[in-house]
Amino acid sequence: MNLIEEALERGENTLSEHASKQLLAAYGIPVSREVEVRRSEDLAGALDEVGFPLVLKACGPGFTHKTEKGLVRVDLRTRDEAQRAFEEIWPEAQQAGGSVLVQELVAGRRELAAGLTRDPQFGPCVMFGLGGIFTEILRDVVFRVAPLAQRDAFDMLSEIKGRRILDAVRGMPAADRDQLARILVSLGRIGLDHPQVKEIDVNPLILKAERPVAVDALVVLEG
């Protein structure tokens, strides 16, 4: 894709969150609704387009670990709150040549993770597991070498220790396993189609009722 080639030409080894999601969406992976704001005067229109409640984030190829750096504001419910959050984030985003993402707040209590890593021996390998803070704490993840058949993806869903999180529980519907399987197959396809893609990290992949939505994403490149 052009956005991969353009990033490499600029000497960037990661795609911004917004560009990462554009790549995912091109392969049919559902992503959060969002608008990238590059000028302060465009904020009002973005708020109208996305609607409340929403999230504001600094966005750019250099912005990883945004939450830890204080560059994310969550559950903004009024224009005044959004304006104040934007004024706090914008200077650092602008200084780094980045932007601010105005993103829908995706409501869901179940967080998953999916991704891709390029193994020196096996090539692109797809990952699936528990997401959010549990990714590093529990390390409940499984891998498959791409390409994945639909059957392989379904097997991955059943192999994590926390697989019951995908069932109907506490009034929440069962996860759409068909859609989850398609996401995993698509991640493998990205790795095969684009040898410049070294890693993909989709975390969290939130279950909005039964539907998985990629809320944050990072694509790492190698020339």
Rank of each mutant, 00 (worst) to 15 (best):
E36Y: 06
E36I: 08
V37N: 00
V37P: 00
R39E: 15
S40G: 08
E41S: 14
E41T: 08
D42Y: 14
L43M: 11
A46R: 02
D48M: 11
D48P: 01
E49H: 08
V50K: 02
P53V: 09
L54I: 06
L54W: 05
L56G: 00
L56F: 03
K57S: 03
C59I: 06
P61Y: 12
G62P: 02
G62F: 01
F63M: 12
F63Q: 03
F63D: 02
T64F: 10
T64M: 11
H65G: 08
K66R: 15
K66G: 04
T67F: 11
T67M: 07
E68S: 08
G70E: 08
V72S: 00
V72G: 00
R73K: 13
R73D: 06
D75V: 01
L76T: 05
L76A: 06
R77S: 10
R77M: 08
T78W: 04
D80Y: 01
E81Q: 15
Q83G: 09
A85F: 04
F86Q: 01
I89T: 02
I89V: 14
I89C: 01
W90K: 06
E92F: 01
A93W: 01
A93Q: 08
A93E: 03
Q95S: 12
S99R: 13
V100A: 06
L101D: 00
